[in-house]
Design a protein around this nucleic acid. Sequence first.
DNA 1: GCTGCGATCACCT
DNA 2: GGTGATCGCAGCG
Length: 207
Amino acid sequence: MNNNDFLHSHIALPSDFYNRRTVEVARDLIGCILVHQTDENTLAGRIVETEAYGPDDPANHAWRGQTRRNQAMFGPFAHAYVYKIYGMYYCLNAVTCPVGVGEAVLLRAVEPLVGIETMKRNRSMDDPRKLCSGPGKLCQAFGIDSRFNHAPLTEGSLKICYGKRDPIIVMTTTRIGISHGAELPWRFCLENNPFLSKTVRRDKAIA
DNA sequence: GCTGCGATCACCT
DNA sequence: GGTGATCGCAGCG
C-alpha cells in the first residue's frame, strides 16, 4: 500500500468521539491510527497504549488549575495537548472535555505502520519495537513537537483515524511513573502487543 | 530569586 | 538498577 492509498483508506475520528468520559476515550483510542502527513511523507501507526488523566486526579497536569503549559487541556476537545517533559522530550495528548475542563488522554505507544524508514531516521534507531514504544519516543518518531499544541486532531496534518475492525483485547492496568495519588486503573493497552512501552504492569492487569 | 522534581529515555553496570 | 540530559512549574522565601 502506498502513502496515498493509506491516507484515503482512513477517516479521522469525529470530534464528538472525544466528548465523552476520558477513560472511555482512552480505552476506545486503542486500535485507532495516528497519522502525521508531512510535506515529504505519511507517518502512521496503530495506537496500542494510552493513559487517561481525568477528574479528581492528582497526577493530572490540570489538577492545580490552568497554567500556560496546560492551557490546551482546558481548550476544546478533539485537539492536541503537547508538552515538553524533562526538558528534552515531548508528549502528545488528546483533549477530551469541553472548554474549561482540563482532561486528556496521553498516547503512550504506537505500532509503526507507514513511514517506518523516516521514523528510524527521526529516532536514530533501527529496532521497530523501540521506535514508538513510549510517549517521548512516538513524538520523536512522528516529528511531533510544541508546534502541534492546540492543533485539531480531526483535520490538518495530524489526525487520529479509525482503525481496522479486527477483534482486539484491551487490557486495563494501573498507571506508573507518577507519584501523586493512588495508581488508578486508567491505562489501556493492546494485550500482548510487542510494541508497548517498557512500563506496562501485567501484574496489575484487570481484564 | 532559588531549589527540587516530573505523564522520559538511552546508556551504563 | 542507577545516572545524566535539561525545561517549566510549584513552593519557598
